[in-house]
């Protein structure tokens, strides 16, 4: 890889000349943490775009999140959700998610279609059930490494009639007995489901 040639200051470009949607397509790809921590103070056009709700249709909290403490990530996530002004459609929360944060998302994001929750010990069955009640448009739910029970699955099925995709990964659960009730809860409550992925589930042949 060749190092870029040294640039003199007058070679800097005025990125204000780019159309908004081009700049927006760069920002959206950066992910929420980069936008909040650096992109929004790069220049005025980026700053303005970072305040506009459509920039926050999708909130991806993955990039470089490990450098921050959970309370800060929770605060940043909440800030990002607030900036979407109810337009949020797609969100990805890893590790730092809590019931409170999930409730905030559910309370303010009636249009949410896709929710990814990975490794969030701070979210309980009740938390997810209560949030689901406020997310009638939810189409895709992915829950990984989280001990969710049939109770929450039933609640999600009842409250989210449009649910088409469910990914449910319980790999870390130390449970060895055979158990069909989760799968039954899914079948009985999620009639629109088109895509189902169960990992680490103790489903038996009979249950299947």
């Amino acid at each position: 890889m060749h190092p870029p040639p040294p640039e003199s200051p007058d070679e800097f470009h005025d990125w204000l000349e780019l159309p908004r949607d081009v700049t927006a397509s760069i920002l959206v790809r950066l992910g929420a943490i980069h936008i909040l921590k650096s992109a929004q103070t790069v220049c005025s056009s980026w700053h303005n775009l970072c305040k506009e709700p459509p920039t926050w249709h999708t909130i991806d909290m993955r990039n470089s999140g490990w450098q921050e403490t959970f309370p800060k990530l929770q605060k940043m996530c909440q800030d990002a959700v607030d900036r979407s002004c109810g337009l949020l459609v797609d969100i990805n929360v890893e590790y730092f998610g809590t019931n409170e944060l999930l409730m905030h998302i559910a309370d303010t994001s009636p249009k949410l279609k896709r929710l990814w929750v990975v490794h969030c010990c701070g979210i309980s069955d009740e938390g997810l059930s209560q949030a689901a009640a406020k997310l009638p448009l939810l189409e895709e739910l992915s829950i990984s490494y989280y001990p969710l029970t049939k109770k929450a699955l039933k609640a999600v099925g009842r409250c989210c009639p449009r649910l088409k995709s469910l990914k449910f990964n319980t790999q870390t659960q130390k449970r060895y007995e055979e158990y069909d009730e989760e799968a039954l809860a899914i079948v009985e409550n999620m009639s629109e489901l088109r895509h189902l992925q169960l990992v680490g589930n103790r489903l038996t042949n009979d249950g299947l």
């Binding site: 470009h13 790069v42 921050e68």
Partner: peptide
């Protein structure tokens, strides 16, 4: 635009605005 955002992410640490400006040649206004 995919490449531009990748350059920012590849700075490695969580960059400050000055790092972003230098990396992709944006001038602050």
């Amino acid at each position: 635009s995919q490449r531009v955002s990748k350059m920012v992410i590849e700075i490695g640490k969580l960059p400050e605005e000055e790092d972003v400006r230098k990396t992709i040649n944006i001038k602050s206004d």
